[in-house]
């Protein structure tokens, strides 16, 4: 299995390939390969809109990390 860590200033549900699958700032265990990563609602207060990542050769201690920023108007 592969491991993903999604950084965001708040706790928010994470969408993997358009399905809810874990939360921000927690380790998410997934199968290897290509995935799109975005956040749950509200959809207009983070950026970028989504990441496309390829999960490969990660571990729980060394996960693939992506960071979403809170948009300034928040």
């Amino acid at each position: 299995m592969e491991y993903l860590l999604v950084h965001f200033p708040r706790s928010r549900r994470v969408l993997i390939d358009d399905e809810f699958n874990g939360r921000t700032n927690e380790l998410i265990e997934l199968e290897a390969g290509r995935h799109t990563v975005s956040l749950g609602p509200p959809y207009d207060n983070y950026e970028p809109d989504e990441y496309t990542v390829i999960l490969k050769n990660t571990s729980a201690l060394d996960p693939r990390e992506v960071t979403f920023e809170l948009k300034e108007h928040e």
Partner: peptide, 19 residues
């Protein structure tokens, strides 16, 4: 086609089982 299937079709090199 659901998105995980779309992604899986690109996984020949990275995850043959998913592909």
């Amino acid at each position: 086609l659901p998105k995980d299937y779309q992604a899986g079709l690109h996984d020949y090199d990275d995850n043959r089982r998913r592909y």
